[in-house]
Simulated scan of single mutants.
Amino acid sequence: MIDGEKFLERPIRWAMIGGGRGSQIGYIHRSAALRDNNFQLVAGAFDIDPERGRDFGEKCYVAPDRCYTDYKEMFAAEAKREDGIEAVSIATPNFTHYEIAKAALEAGLHVYCEKPMCFFSNEAQELERLAKEKNRIMFLSYGYCGHQMIEQARRMVASGGLGPIRILNMQFAHGAHNVAVEKKSAATAWRVDPKKAGLSYVLGDVGTHMLYLQEAIVPQLKIRRLMCSAQSFVEGRALEDNAMSIMEYESGAIGYIWSSCVNAGSEFGARFRIVGEKASIAWDAEHPNQLQYEVQGSMQGAMQRGAGYLYAEARADDRIGGGHPEGLFEAWSNLYTKFARAINKNEKGEPIDFWYPDVHAGAEGVKWVEKCVESAKNEGAWVTY
């Protein structure tokens, strides 16, 4: 169980880029990072409007002289301080991620980056190279993998209890943008603008979350080829708002990912079912404390977060014991704790003996989107992965 005891000599000096007033994700980043006292928010470039960003930073107890105009000014100034920042979180629109992450790694900082990490595979390869060259941790914000039952699912697959995996049926299909909400919402407008969102909308925005859950739970599966059908149902959208991707794996397994923002009536719609030869498991992000476990020929049931029958590695992510509901804030806190542990081991020169969404996971997400878009543009033709 995580009980907040320190494992670092002192909190890691941490900054944020973006995530200021009105941000959809800024607060959860700060809440998750600060919850276990592993990080201390000491600086930031919180807003594209410097004055608004400075006002926001000061109200988050950041010293006025460390509330910066932009990330370039922050990196240069903090590098001159004995107590300068050691890690940074990037919570800005997609089109800025690559240049900021590259600059952060070049400045010798550990990086926690919103996805997508970048738009193109050559950029992803450059970030992978830099992270290795600079010996820095780069962490991708795949927040759902921090839920305890994802660790349980991973252990169940690894144990062989499901048998060989045959089918992965995954979706992240909400209905929040079933009409042109971007005409009134700036937070949505950039997501459907190719200059700011990249090659895709829903494939990169929601589909990659499910791709990474597949990678985390069934890491042995490697994609051999894929095909994708994508649509823009809302008139005027330059990027897809619905897509179905089918993956064939080298093992012979098959996977499906439905990515959508036009699933009218669905508030969220993130869930998966993993089918093995002997049994299946299923999980729904709106009910994250349960994992359905269904053995062929036996009674179906739901495994509960915090229960004594879970694998020890899953119970290690407990924060409030069994019976109480945990949610996304706990999941993100678990990931920021992993970020801190990875930084700690990195600084000590120790091997990192646990999984987390690293720079390579970010690169895989970029590659998957590229391949899906390539297939969709060729009328859903199979594309070698």
Score class of each variant (00 low, 15 high):
240 E>A: 01
199 L>M: 14
189 A>N: 04
196 K>C: 07
241 D>I: 08
232 S>G: 03
196 K>A: 13
237 R>T: 04
224 R>I: 04
235 E>Q: 15
187 A>W: 12
231 Q>N: 13
225 R>M: 06
220 Q>I: 10
195 K>Q: 15
190 W>M: 02
200 S>K: 11
224 R>N: 11
234 V>E: 01
195 K>C: 13
204 G>D: 03
226 L>Q: 05
185 S>N: 15
195 K>L: 14
202 V>K: 02
186 A>Q: 14
210 M>D: 01
235 E>H: 13
233 F>V: 08
215 E>I: 10
229 S>M: 12
206 V>S: 08
221 L>K: 02
200 S>E: 07
188 T>H: 15
192 V>I: 15
236 G>W: 05
215 E>P: 02
185 S>E: 11
214 Q>M: 15
227 M>V: 09
214 Q>Y: 00
237 R>E: 00
240 E>P: 00
230 A>I: 03
187 A>K: 13
220 Q>P: 04
216 A>M: 13
197 A>N: 06
214 Q>F: 01
186 A>H: 08
200 S>N: 07
198 G>A: 11
188 T>L: 10
212 Y>K: 03
229 S>Q: 14
205 D>E: 14
209 H>N: 10
196 K>L: 12
239 L>S: 04
230 A>R: 07
190 W>N: 03
220 Q>S: 15
185 S>R: 13
238 A>H: 07
239 L>A: 02
197 A>F: 04
238 A>F: 13
205 D>A: 15
183 K>F: 10
238 A>I: 06
203 L>H: 06
204 G>I: 05
230 A>K: 07
217 I>V: 11
208 T>L: 10
215 E>W: 10
233 F>R: 15
238 A>V: 12
193 D>E: 10
216 A>Q: 12
237 R>C: 08
208 T>M: 07
191 R>L: 14
226 L>K: 03
238 A>Q: 15
216 A>R: 15
221 L>F: 06
189 A>V: 06
221 L>H: 05
207 G>P: 09
217 I>W: 05
217 I>P: 00
219 P>M: 10
210 M>N: 03
198 G>M: 09
234 V>P: 00
192 V>K: 08
208 T>K: 07
225 R>E: 11
193 D>V: 09
200 S>Y: 07
226 L>Y: 06
195 K>V: 11
241 D>M: 05
235 E>V: 05
214 Q>A: 14
222 K>P: 00
